[in-house]
């Protein structure tokens, strides 16, 4: 599989007056074509910021992001590979669909980025109805408004809107977090089928480990802006290496038996860790003196890497 996206030491800082917050720090991540890469981490860990840099909503402060070999950001400008090449689906279909537009208008809107001929071609009646059917909606739904649909149906509309331009890459930011379990399963199945049918590549952002495990080939775990561990999904679940990944897995309120001993956060550190320290120092149950200097991200195997002194 060839590389589609390559993050190279990407930083993102947000400023407010003289203060600044680093939302993403030194992110390195590769997304292979046709794969599903999952981003997990607690709220505020930088998952969504990373995703937003791919769709042009946030500009990286440092580092480079390559898409299919070409840089996505150049001189503070977002270089769109091809209109509609990259699409996104967000968490809350209530707020990501314009309440005053009919479903048909919503789905066709991304086509305005395209040339007239292509727009006509891609927005044809047959194409629209077959897309509606494909995502599990009916042709007569096209003239309705978003409020007439349930949460699951609205998310199907958002998926149809993302697919109308024939993208090759979609950022899915918590696409099922607002849905009920029974509906979540339907939407996850749909996303998986569409990926296989259309040879799509996904960046799947979620805080739900079970969903991530089910959907993704590769997982990257984020903590306070840093990718602390990344690797093949199965590897990460079977033998997590970073203490934070371990805690995350043992916190899952699974209905099934858990493997391995329960692990929790340590009480806050007494010593002031300073700026140099590992981001997880404050709460790591295994912290030691060496951790006052942040560990580098290092590979354990070709695909599996971790940023922790314990794995040195």
């Amino acid at each position: 599989m060839s590389t589609l996206i390559d993050f190279h030491s990407v930083d993102k800082s947000f400023y407010k007056g003289k203060e600044s917050v680093k939302a993403v720090i030194g992110a390195n991540l590769t997304v292979k074509k046709g794969s599903v890469v999952g981003l997990v981490g607690e709220s505020g860990s930088g998952k969504s910021t990373l995703g937003k840099m791919l769709i042009g909503l946030e500009m990286p402060s440092e580092g480079s992001i390559q898409y299919a070999g070409a840089p996505l950001w150049k001189n503070k400008k977002f270089i769109r590979p091809r209109p509609g090449e990259i699409q996104s689906v967000f968490q809350d279909p209530q707020s990501s669909l314009d309440p005053r537009m009919r479903v048909k208008e919503i789905i066709l809107e991304p086509l305005f980025a395209l040339g007239t001929r292509e727009r006509k071609e891609k927005g044809s009646r047959e194409r629209l109805t077959s897309l509606m059917k494909r995502v599990g909606l009916k042709a007569e739904h096209l003239d309705r408004y978003p409020h007439e649909f349930s949460g699951g149906q609205r998310q199907r509309i958002a998926i149809a809107r993302a697919l109308i331009t024939d993208p090759s890459f979609i950022v899915l930011d918590e696409p099922t977090s607002a849905l009920d379990v029974s509906v979540q399963a339907q939407v996850l199945n749909l996303l998986k089928e569409l990926k296989n049918e259309r040879n799509l590549t996904y960046l799947f952002i979620s805080h739900n480990m079970s969903v991530i495990r089910y959907m993704c080939d590769v997982i990257a775990v984020m903590y306070k802006g840093r990718i602390v561990e990344s690797g093949p999904a199965r590897k990460l679940f079977e033998s997590p290496r970073h203490p934070y990944t371990k805690i995350l897995l043992s916190s899952l309120p699974s209905i099934f038996e858990k493997k391995g001993p329960a692990l929790s956060f340590a009480p806050p550190a007494e010593v002031d860790s300073g700026e140099e320290a590992c981001g997880f120092f404050e709460r790591c149950p295994f912290r030691m003196e060496a951790c006052l200097k942040a560990p580098a991200f290092e590979s354990i195997t070709e695909e599996h890497g971790v940023a922790c002194h314990l794995e040195g």
């Binding site: 349930s150 149906q153 379990v181 029974s182 399963a185 079970s210 089910y214």
Partner: peptide, 24 residues
């Protein structure tokens, strides 16, 4: 039973999830 099966917790990633058809 259906609710338990719809959870992705233990599902085999190679198999589709056993979603509950329709809606409430």
């Amino acid at each position: 039973e259906a609710l338990l099966h719809a959870l992705p917790d233990l599902a085999d990633p190679e198999e589709p999830l056993k979603a509950i058809p329709g809606e409430v």
